[in-house]
């Protein structure tokens, strides 16, 4: 059951094509998993299209440039129907396969190897080419990430399983944005653990106890 959705204003920006790429990728993956936001986006698109094309300004009749364009276009061949993409639909960790939302499937080829961070937390970096530091993170049952805040923002989408962070419980498809206002301690008690996809724009900042030791090199963990 999905309880955490992108803000409506971000769905609007996404539908208009005005979102930052990192946020757009996150929202797109959430929309793949969330029927409600899918419906919202369809309605927002219809509204945007209505506004855009209803303009009552005087439309000038087509000049020669347009006519030339039109005749060039009608020379073009018909496009083939799209074929289902052959890209890998899932990622694997230690024999366990996770099916990814469509939006993230093309990122499988950009995903590096899994490495164990600390304790029961695993991480595989995803190279998005500079739009943010992206990772798949997997928490085994009982796995905890030390309590931390964020210097920048961290977007998280639950791909599989459930986890909690002392603020709320998150289920498959839930989307959250954390910033330096939030202090949280993610942990999973789900039998199958929890796989999330995250994009952070700055390293995490650990706030409690001995985990603060990690701060000077937290960028090594949470790239």
């Amino acid at each position: 059951m999905i309880s955490f959705h992108p803000k409506y204003i971000d769905l609007q920006a996404f539908s208009a094509g005005n979102c930052e790429p990192a946020m757009a990728l996150m929202i797109s993956a959430h929309v793949d998993m969330c029927a409600q936001c899918q419906q919202d986006c369809i309605e927002i698109q219809a509204d945007l299209a209505g506004e855009l094309f209803a303009e009552q300004a005087i439309i000038k009749p087509l000049d020669s440039d347009y006519l030339e364009m039109m005749s060039n276009i009608t020379q073009l061949p018909i496009a083939k129907s799209p074929v289902a993409q052959a890209s890998n639909a899932s990622i694997e960790l230690d024999g366990k396969f996770f099916e990814l939302p469509r939006a993230l499937r093309r990122q499988v080829k950009n995903t590096g190897n899994w490495s164990r961070l600390v304790g029961k937390i695993w991480q595989a970096p995803v190279n998005l080419g500079g739009i943010g530091k992206a990772n798949f993170m997997y928490m085994e049952k009982g796995g905890r990430v030390p309590e931390h805040t964020h210097k920048g923002t961290e977007m998280t989408l639950v791909i599989d399983g459930q986890y909690g962070d002392g603020i709320a419980e998150y289920d498959c498809g839930d989307f959250t944005v954390m910033n330096n206002q939030h202090k949280h301690l993610p942990h999973s008690e789900a039998d199958d653990g929890c796989l999330v996809f995250t994009i952070v724009d700055q390293p995490l900042h650990f706030t409690a106890g001995i985990a603060r030791l990690l701060n000077p090199f937290s960028h090594l963990f949470f790239k």
């Binding site: 600390v118 304790g119 029961k120 085994e140 905890r144 990430v145 001995i210 985990a211």
Partner: peptide
């Protein structure tokens, strides 16, 4: 799947 690894805090 069953995996068995150390706890974060123990390890640090």
């Amino acid at each position: 799947v069953s995996l068995d690894h150390q706890v974060t805090m123990d390890e640090i």
